[in-house]
Design a protein around this nucleic acid. Structure first.
Lengths: 167, 167
DNA sequence: TTAAACTTTCAATATTTTTTGAAAGTTTAA
DNA sequence: TTAAACTTTCAAAAAATATTGAAAGTTTAA
């Protein structure tokens, strides 16, 4: 496998994986491309490389910046904007964990809390609803703590120690 | 909030969350419904409750069974098939972690391994590709270990201890 | 100012994914 | 056997999502 094959394989794998996680293909591929690019890339570069339209590129770059994993850069004396990805994969994971917690986990925890606190009317179905949503609430809470504390730790010693311990 | 409101809120939240994780709405909602149902439900029950077609119900029940989180049950003297969900949320998490590891993480790890082992031709771009895919490979490996060992542990003492420690 | 060089927006279009429902398939009881 | 009671399959339709590209917007330099 040469460089170009490896690069394409990586980009398309990342793209396919993205769709499995609710991230669209273009967004995941742009991210993959920036991640392995030693130099910042312009919008033209990205469009060219991935064969996607200007509009698509612009919108997905914006989303990646909203996620805090892609940044704008300006080259001196050039008007064009360039883009880079967060290159430290630990920091990348931290940022993704933080955002997914904020966008998905925390709203879900709130709803599980509301639902599990309805008044128990003594019926079996109400008992089951309360029991199961309470259990999910507890689990989601633990997951949230782990995502924010374990992955979110700078210099991730916890993960290292943990993996060593249980491997 | 009364029982019906709470139930609908839970089912629709679970459905919306599913789509965010690459699971379709019907599949997630069927699962939610079974999870809070004290009794096994028939296909008719599910169709009725969620207002979806027979075909849709059949296909998504099959998928849930493939994931190992929904089971067929037969009631004595009845030809109709009934369905229940795994009710223990720890076991549910374990099963989901196991399947996602097998379906997504492991194939990805394999590709990251292949890509990161291309021959270093001395160019900056090759160096970057190798460096980043190696880093992702290591991270994916750790995640795989955690998913299979930490979540996969019966009587999940590690999570409990960990959460207590870092909370 | 103006205009060139660039980016963003968004309605229209294309693509992908999900859902339907009827026909085909299966199982059981008589 | 047959037929009733049920489930599965799958082509077609619907719905949801992603993509395009051109017009509108913005910034900078002269």
């Amino acid at each position: 496998m040469n460089y170009d094959e490896a690069k394409n394989k990586f980009i398309s794998t990342w793209g396919a994986l993205g769709t499995l996680w609710g991230i669209n293909k273009a967004m995941a591929q742009i991210h993959a491309l920036l991640l392995i690019s030693p130099e910042p890339l312009s919008m033209e570069d990205i469009m060219e490389e991935l064969q996607i339209s200007r509009g698509n590129t612009s919108m997905n770059l914006r989303q990646l910046m909203d996620w805090g994993i892609v940044f704008k850069e300006n080259k001196m004396g050039e008007r064009k904007e360039y883009f880079t990805s967060e290159k430290d994969v630990q920091e990348l994971a931290r940022q993704i964990a933080k955002e997914r917690s904020r966008r998905e986990l925390q709203p879900t925890i709130k709803i599980l809390n509301d639902v599990s606190n309805i008044k128990d009317d003594g019926t079996a179905k109400t008992a089951e609803l309360i029991k199961q949503t309470k259990a999910l609430h507890e689990m989601a809470d633990n997951l949230d703590i782990m995502m924010n504390k374990v992955v979110g730790q700078e210099h991730n010693w916890i993960t290292k120690a943990l993996v060593k311990l249980i491997k």
